[in-house]
Design a protein around this nucleic acid. Sequence first.
DNA 1: CTGAATCCACCTAGATACTG
DNA 2: CAGTATCTAGGTGGATTCAG
Lengths: 125, 125
Amino acid sequence: MTPGDMDFPTPHPAGDCRMVREILDLVGDKWSLYIIASLKDGPVRFNELRRRIEGISQRMLTITLRGLERDGLVKRTLFPTIPPRVDYELTDVGRSLLEPVMALTLWANANQLNIQHARAIYDAG
Amino acid sequence: MTPGDMDFPTPHPAGDCRMVREILDLVGDKWSLYIIASLKDGPVRFNELRRRIEGISQRMLTITLRGLERDGLVKRTLFPTIPPRVDYELTDVGRSLLEPVMALTLWANANQLNIQHARAIYDAG
DNA sequence: CTGAATCCACCTAGATACTG
DNA sequence: CAGTATCTAGGTGGATTCAG
């Protein structure tokens, strides 16, 4: 580490953007938000979750759930019965994420036509 | 388009989640939010933008700007001087996106310790 | 039922070199 | 200055198969 470059509190003016990117690294993948949304009304079992989220593969459901569990957004409960049963549910932290996501949803609602229009114009030109 | 599959209003209960995903497809990539944040105070030229966003390559800056321009979030203005000059600035739509993004930032601020903690516990077990 | 393991196709994005 | 073109490594996610 060269002494001259010791501290770089904010390498660029984008400041806060750093943390937003961390969230996007958290739930910005293809399936996380679908899972969170699908869990908003209470615990759901693995295969039921799989049925609810159309198009997700078994592998991606497992992997994504593991990530959400690791980040403390989803809680996994194993019932050691035969056959085994596993419930997934949102933690308080996970549920609190629904709020800012809702803000994004509102923005999407308000602007999706603008965006479609802009694209149509751009693609025409 | 097969007549049978005509309409599928909400294939799964995740409903609103669709639109959120569309936004993530819009600005959920690696650089879009950095660019939007870097443009929040007014027009910026290409190379200045490149200097502000540490780590971005010339290619990715071009590609990402094209996408944002196509979606109507960023406006590109060419001054046909020699050497050429190009200004990029947020449109009203682009600027309006800063609000819900700010909500995400607040959530990140409030929960980043929770997440770090959850990860530490998970990785320990 | 709930996974883990493996293989593979696609896409993203970085490096580099070149252009008007 | 503001791009474009090409090549390539690495990551993401789908399909399939196996296991407890």
